[in-house]
Amino acid sequence: CKVCGDVASGFHYGVHACEGCKGFFRRSIQQNIQYKKCLKNENCSIMRMNRNRCQQCRFKKCLSVGMSR
């Protein structure tokens, strides 16, 4: 997965992504979610083991690796 490094389940929203990141991105855009501000200057490292800790940084990384509708 380009977002968290887990095993990708396919090509989702323009990038190779796992089911977790695919679902997270889908919910984020469909529900237009505004995530809580990052407590670490929006510089969190997103990996499989910690991908749920900072939703703002995870969504930012989804966009930075090329995920789009």
Rank of each mutant, 00 (worst) to 15 (best):
Y13M: 03
K40T: 13
K37T: 09
H12N: 10
C54Q: 00
V15F: 00
E42W: 04
I46P: 13
K37W: 10
V3K: 01
V3T: 00
I46S: 08
N32V: 04
V15K: 03
V3I: 09
K60C: 02
N32D: 10
R26H: 08
S28K: 02
Q56G: 09
H16P: 11
G10V: 11
C38Q: 02
I29K: 00
R58K: 06
V65R: 01
G5H: 04
K40S: 13
R53N: 15
C38S: 05
N41Y: 06
R58F: 14
V65D: 05
L63I: 15
H16N: 09
N41W: 04
F59Q: 06
F59R: 06
R48Q: 14
S45G: 11
A8D: 03
R69C: 12
R27G: 07
V7T: 11
K60W: 13
K36T: 09
E42D: 12
K36E: 14
S9Y: 06
R69N: 13
H12P: 01
N43G: 12
G5C: 02
S68R: 08
C38P: 04
V7C: 06
V7Q: 14
F25A: 03
C54V: 03
K36R: 05
R58C: 15
C57I: 07
R51P: 14
Y13T: 05
K2L: 06
M67D: 13
I46N: 12
A17G: 04
Q31K: 08
S68K: 12
M47A: 12
Q31C: 05
I33N: 08
Q31E: 14
I46V: 14
Q56P: 10
R26L: 10
F25V: 02
N43R: 11
M47R: 11
N32R: 07
R26T: 13
N43E: 13
A17E: 02
V3S: 10
K36V: 09
R58P: 03
M67C: 05
N43V: 10
V65Q: 03
G66W: 14
V15S: 00
I46E: 07
D6N: 07
K37Q: 11
G14R: 02
C1E: 05
A8V: 02
S28C: 14
K60R: 12
C62Q: 01
F24G: 02
V15A: 13
S68I: 11
N41F: 03
K37M: 15
N32P: 06
K37R: 08
F24R: 00
N32E: 14
A8P: 01
Q55T: 02
K60F: 13
A17K: 00
E42T: 04
N41G: 12
C62Y: 06
S64A: 12
